[in-house]
Design a protein around this nucleic acid. Structure first.
Lengths: 230, 230
DNA sequence: CTTAATTTGTGTAAAAACAACACAAAATTA
DNA sequence: TAATTTTGTGTTGTTTTTACACAAATTAAG
């Protein structure tokens, strides 16, 4: 009766941000038809394993990382030629991580794991460049209506870090005063009393933290995070 | 090596709108464990068939309809118990249709096909109520930032039709003057010179059409459709 | 130790968008 | 011919957004 010869995989587009540059994680395949090729971390799911668990497992195995944010991006099913023996349908997940928190280590299946600046991602195997492109768009649009930027930063950050993150990912200029005013008006970013100088010179700045519980509380009261400015 | 016992299906959440009510399409299963149960239209995909083609085929087969709008909603993969013989992962699609354009007819696999008001969808088989819920949220939010409402209406419509559609789907009051002003300011809705009276009484209204080419042209110039008002 | 350079931090005013609101016109029904 | 229903239209006050510049705290260089 039902005679499908299709296998299911998951793949992850993991973004990391550091000093004004957005990176994507790729791994170098150790085995198979595409040995030595760079691809997104991912792999086949187990029969009794939830999709999201499969992604987390693969990220752990192939790169040694745990993500801050993870959501389903979409399913890419028409990659009929991925493997000669069967069609592969892949469920892609979109993830955010703070690269500082991890040392990449290629473990089981992967020969190597590496951060590529999004602007310089090489030709990946399968349809993975397409996934990266879609994920990149998702990141850009989501940044404007969900406070996910914090998942790319340190727990404590300078306001300028946040501002630069928005500037560089959205690729536009932001008015510092208006940006700060708007973010602070939401009340989901708290000022700590720590003051630090991070760069070489210049006036030291206060550290801020994202108040996640407050955000979730506001959500219940119909709060809408929204950053769209000139 | 890869020994998966999983099958892939697609399911569709098809919305239709008529006279202030939003409907979802369900079909009654003819065979299998859930014979006679209402479920979303859908089914297993063929080995060499793109996902979206599978959805279109199933909609044709099970209900005799062709949709106006179709996009991937998400993949529901943890429904391990759907079938006893294997796990089923289902890729759900979100679709819009104008119910007037079709007479529902249950063809191949389905015993019956029927529109249910979203507020009165019965307990469906599998995890289909969850899919409907997610699709409903998607419809509501998408209505505010993409001009998809037109896919639920006739080609030519009264302004009041459009307004009522927004009112009833978003479940809030809309100021007629502000709504009209805003929509017309986009320049994507053209007035025809036809005038009709549709209801029993009242002043006849002009018919309007959605100018899709104009919309796509504006998109290239960075236009942002956006309806968020009190 | 003084000056230049760098980065943080802050307020105001003009412009644009949004919200609130009421009545006349064209038709049907009683 | 009066009552009812539905379409169609502008203005004003309020809120939000944009544009914009200079002082304060530090480091680096002379």
């Amino acid at each position: 009766m039902i005679d499908q010869n299709i296998k299911i995989a998951v793949d992850a587009i993991v973004f990391g941000y550091e000093k004004g540059t957005l990176y994507v994680l790729a791994v170098q395949q150790r085995f198979g038809k595409l040995a030595d090729r760079w691809v997104l971390p991912g792999g086949f799911i187990l029969d009794d394993e939830p999709l999201i668990t499969a992604v987390e497992r693969e990220l752990k195995e192939e790169a040694g990382i745990t993500v801050n944010y993870l959501e389903q991006l979409g399913t890419f099913g028409d990659d009929v030629k991925r493997d000669e023996r069967f069609r592969v349908i892949s469920v892609a997940y979109f993830a955010l991580v703070n690269p500082k928190n991890f040392v990449l280590k290629a473990d089981t299946d992967a020969k190597d794991a590496k951060w590529f600046p999004v602007a310089q991602v090489p030709a990946l195997g399968y349809d993975h460049n397409e996934m990266v492109k879609l994920a990149h768009q998702r990141l850009k649009s989501k940044l404007t209506y969900q406070p996910i930027g914090f998942d790319l930063l340190d727990h404590e950050f300078l306001f300028s870090d946040l501002e630069n993150l928005y500037c560089s990912i959205l690729e536009r200029d932001i008015d510092r005063r208006n940006f700060r005013k708007k973010i602070l008006s939401f009340g989901i970013v708290k000022e700590t009393d720590k003051v630090v100088k991070i760069g070489a010179s210049g006036r030291p700045g206060k550290l801020f933290v994202f108040d996640k519980p407050k955000y979730h509380q506001l959500l219940k009261e119909n709060f809408q995070f929204d950053i769209r400015f000139a």
